[in-house]
Design a protein around this nucleic acid. Structure first.
Lengths: 227, 227
DNA sequence: AAAAACTAACTGACCAGTCATTTATTTAAT
DNA sequence: ATTAAATAAATGACTGGTCAGTTAGTTTTT
């Protein structure tokens, strides 16, 4: 076992210099640990160890522990939006057509634990790290919500769907899905016969979209909505 | 002002013995602080000070800091359910009638910050305090979800609503509301012309229930739900 | 005077961030 | 090619501060 020196073989180096790869490795390790334990209960030493370096090394790449979680969210928040929003904005016609087109993309995104981990983290740590929530609001929520609201507004104007408050219709659409993602593992809500979150998500998508889309049908103009 | 000693007047006592009132005062203080700062960043000293006692006094009533948050959730989790679940379970007929009947009650509950603070806290701290999530699951979620699922199942069987997966329909119903409650202050999502969370909630209820209830209409049997 | 409620000072553990030192890699000279 | 100096990457021991929980002693009530 003692292949330290001599013994003819190579001396295995104690560490390697890999400046390029470190930051991402550290962020990956941090995301895992923050997800498992939360930010406050994760030590910088733990992050460094899981990334295979010492605590001191982490401080070569990040000025503070706070900077780590911010970089984490920053890294995750970029590639999410962009193209999608543009497609939503320039669409014309029945909003439900577009929704159904995007279902597979959404479902795939939401089934990847490393992707959903970030918004969950933001929700949990927002109180002590307002900048995280701000980033997410500016670069994700603040772009997707208005785009979808416009989509519905235009759908109402074109007579494709029943006249509804567009901003609230967006919440009606996204609420069940986001709720499921955030709460599923917190409360371990497993519907009957569901092993991983995946199948449950598919079932939810199916049922919810059925109800939601049917609910948007332009009313047959037969009775007032409430007594 | 210096009525400390002598001076003929009463010496104002440094503290009073009020064994009965202390626990609730401590829990109230703790809930405020946990909500503002999160569990980990709130010190026992802060809780005690806000309740008007010293740190040592807190330990006369609670064996640990963890015990405080558990007592907090325990206290809040009892009176929520009970009567409501029973009424849901014994209802027969169109589920939407019952839903509309309960809207004012729900809206009132969800508009009270001291009430919604607890589930929000549970969601945030569940990772480091699994027992909180367990309590909430057992005594609230695990009772309300099945009751509502049964309500929908029976509604389907009676032909009052379109045939949907009952468990998923429940998520479709509650998702937007819970999402709003949990995310509204995290991301400061303020729809146009909404000052406090109250008005936004009313608008959301209105729009969502319109869509949801219309979406449950027994289909006019004209086309298959998806291509 | 006795008991109960409460306080304030204390302790031991933990941890973010620093820094003097060690190890790996590159460059340049032989 | 081989080796030595220079530089860059990484280590790990250390520090200062914080905080949960304890306890000896004080104040209030009976």
């Amino acid at each position: 076992m003692s292949d330290r020196e001599e013994a003819g073989g190579e001396a295995s180096p104690k560490f390697r210099r890999r400046k390029e790869a470190r930051p991402d490795e550290l962020l990956d390790a941090a995301l895992d640990l923050f997800t498992e334990q939360g930010f406050d209960r994760t030590t910088v030493e733990q992050i460094a160890r899981r990334a295979g370096v010492s605590k001191g090394a982490l401080y070569l790449y990040f000025p503070s522990k706070d900077a780590v979680i911010e970089a984490l969210v920053d890294r995750a928040v970029g590639p999410v939006v962009g193209e999608v929003v543009i497609q939503i904005e320039r669409f014309e016609g029945d909003p439900r057509v577009l929704l159904k087109r995007f279902v597979p993309l959404f479902a795939a995104r939401l089934s990847d634990p490393r992707i959903v981990a970030v918004p969950k983290l933001v929700v949990r740590e927002a109180v002590s790290h307002p900048r995280l929530a701000e980033m997410y609001r500016e670069r994700v929520i603040g772009r997707v919500l208005p785009a979808l609201a416009t989509l519905f507004r235009q759908g109402v104007a074109g007579g494709h769907i029943r006249p509804v408050d567009p901003e609230m219709a967006v919440r009606s659409l996204l609420g069940p899905v986001l709720m499921h993602v955030i709460l599923a593992d917190v409360f371990g809500i497993r519907a009957e016969g569901v092993t991983p979150g995946d199948i449950g998500l598919a079932r939810l998508f199916d049922t919810h979209l059925t109800i939601f889309c049917a609910g948007l049908d332009p009313a047959p103009v037969q009775e007032a909505p409430h007594g």
